Amino acid sequence: SDPSEDRAPESARVGNIPSSTSALKVPQLKVAESAQGPAAAHTTDTAGYNAMEESVSREKPELTASTERVNKRMSMVVSGLTPEEFMLVYKFARKHHITLTNLITEETTHVVMKTDAEFVCERTLKYFLGIAGGKWVVSYFWVTQSIKERKMLNEHDFEVRGDVVNGRNHQGPKRARESQDRKIFRGLEICCYGPFTNMPTDQLEWMVQLCGASVVKELSSFTLGTGVHPIVVVQPDAWTEDNGFHAIGQMCEAPVVTREWVLDSVALYQCQELDTYLIPQIPHSHY
């Protein structure tokens, strides 16, 4: 159930021909089969995070001529859309010479989310990475209204306002976009420790780096000194050995919190207090 199309920051360009055919990675995205229709094609874990990302398996898109002007500035990904909605975005992107990729990268400028009429969405990996990267996180209605009015409308009017977990109007995407000089995790050293489900560890690490944190791979690698705040992030329900995560405190002095601390902080683009996310640790033995 991992969102495989989000696994690594590679891009698939639509609308320009790469210098070599080997560089072309066409979105071959799968549809989750469901008797209840597209709305039930998501699996949500206890964290309220949509693990099964969206989309559609299609034939290789038709490439435009390399001489045609390509908008190098805009690059989009989509999240939560049905196959039909994805194809509408594809046509919109081609019309406006926008790069459409299946994986979010540093070059991505827009994340197009499936939302309700009030621009509230589910939480997906692309949603988190879009906010963390200060990108435009907009409703699919931006595409449909632009098509209806036959011009590209202003993104401000379609920015995602909230999500089904953290609140319907928290304005996290807007706050992140306007606060890239004040990253929420700066001054923190974060170790993403142990197993994680539904989200590859490297993507979680990239997320906290985008928010200004330094990533530490091992508990023994924390910088011990003033001005640096170490934090260990774990996902308790992913551990097979009972309560192993309670013993992390015996290996390092850092506070240990659940992954929800990261996800909530990123969604709201406000660093949350650790208290409600802390995992009790077995104290050091004193002999």
Rank of each mutant, 00 (worst) to 15 (best):
S1F: 08
S1Q: 11
D2A: 07
D2G: 01
S4F: 11
S4Q: 05
S4L: 10
E5L: 09
D6E: 05
R7M: 10
R7Y: 04
A8E: 10
A8F: 11
A8W: 11
A8C: 05
A8M: 10
S11G: 03
S11I: 07
S11V: 12
A12Q: 06
A12V: 10
R13P: 06
V14W: 14
V14A: 03
V14S: 08
G15A: 07
N16E: 07
I17Y: 10
T21V: 08
T21Y: 06
S22F: 08
A23F: 03
L24C: 07
K25H: 04
K25G: 07
K25D: 15
V26I: 04
V26N: 06
P27Q: 08
Q28V: 07
Q28F: 08
L29V: 12
K30V: 13
V31T: 05
E33T: 08
E33P: 09
E33L: 07
A35S: 07
A35P: 09
G37V: 07
G37S: 05
G37F: 05
A40G: 14
A41G: 05
A41V: 09
H42L: 11
H42F: 06
T43S: 08
T43L: 06
T44V: 10
A47S: 12
G48L: 04
Y49R: 12
Y49G: 12
N50W: 09
N50Q: 11
A51R: 08
E53R: 09
E54C: 09
S55G: 13
V56Q: 07
S57T: 05
S57K: 00
S57C: 09
E59S: 09
E59V: 05
K60S: 11
E62G: 12
L63A: 15
T64H: 13
T64L: 14
T64N: 06
S66A: 05
V70A: 13
V70P: 12
K72T: 14
M74K: 09
S75L: 06
M76R: 01
V78T: 08
V78R: 05
S79P: 01
G80V: 14
G80A: 10
L81T: 02
L81E: 01
L81D: 01
T82Y: 04
F86S: 05
F86T: 04
F86A: 06
M87V: 13
L88M: 08
K91H: 09
K91F: 04
K91I: 12
K91E: 13
F92T: 04
H97F: 10
I98Q: 03
I98S: 07
T99F: 14
T99P: 11
L100C: 12
T101I: 03
N102E: 15
N102R: 07
N102L: 03
N102P: 12
L103I: 04
I104E: 02
I104S: 06
E106V: 06
E107H: 03
T108G: 00
H110S: 00
V112F: 00
M113P: 00
K114M: 06
K114A: 10
D116Y: 01
A117R: 07
F119K: 04
F119C: 03
F119M: 15
C121K: 00
C121S: 08
R123M: 02
L125S: 04
K126H: 00
Y127S: 00
Y127Q: 00
L129S: 04
L129R: 03
L129A: 06
G130T: 00
A132L: 01
G133S: 09
G134K: 13
W136V: 05
V137T: 02
V137Q: 00
S139Y: 01
S139Q: 00
Y140R: 01
F141W: 15
Q145K: 13
I147S: 09
I147F: 12
I147L: 06
K148F: 04
L153I: 04
L153P: 02
N154L: 11
E155Y: 12
E155G: 03
E155S: 10
E155P: 10
D157P: 09
D157T: 08
E159T: 09
V160E: 00
V160T: 01
D163V: 01
V164N: 02
V164R: 05
V164P: 05
V164Q: 11
V165R: 03
V165E: 03
V165S: 04
N166R: 09
N166Y: 02
G167S: 04
G167C: 02
G167Q: 01
N169L: 05
N169E: 04
Q171V: 08
P173L: 01
P173S: 02
P173I: 02
K174P: 01
R175T: 08
R177S: 01
R177Y: 00
Q180D: 15
D181C: 11
K183P: 14
I184S: 00
I184P: 12
I184V: 11
F185S: 01
F185T: 00
F185R: 00
R186S: 14
R186T: 14
G187I: 03
G187V: 03
L188A: 08
L188W: 06
I190S: 00
I190M: 12
I190T: 02
C191A: 13
C191Q: 03
C191S: 04
Y193Q: 12
N198E: 15
N198V: 10
T201Q: 06
L204A: 04
V208A: 13
Q209R: 01
V215P: 15
V216L: 14
K217F: 14
K217N: 14
K217L: 13
L219R: 03
L219A: 15
S221R: 11
F222T: 15
T223Q: 14
T223S: 13
T226P: 13
T226R: 13
T226A: 15
G227V: 05
V228H: 12
V228M: 05
V234M: 08
P236L: 10
D237R: 02
D237V: 15
A238W: 03
A238L: 15
W239R: 10
W239S: 14
W239P: 08
E241I: 15
E241L: 04
D242R: 12
N243P: 03
G244V: 06
F245P: 13
H246R: 13
A247K: 03
G249T: 15
M251P: 15
M251H: 11
C252A: 11
E253S: 13
E253V: 11
A254C: 15
A254F: 15
A254R: 15
A254P: 05
P255V: 15
P255L: 04
V256A: 04
V256L: 15
V256T: 07
V257I: 10
V257P: 00
V257R: 01
V257L: 12
T258M: 05
V262M: 10
V262W: 00
L263S: 01
S265T: 04
S265R: 02
A267R: 03
L268F: 10
L268C: 14
Q270D: 01
C271G: 06
C271Q: 15
T276R: 08
Y277L: 01
L278T: 11
Q281D: 14
I282A: 13
I282G: 14
I282W: 14
P283W: 15
P283Q: 04
H284V: 07
H286M: 08
H286G: 12
H286Y: 08
H286F: 03
Y287Q: 09
Y287S: 11
Y287P: 13
Y287L: 08
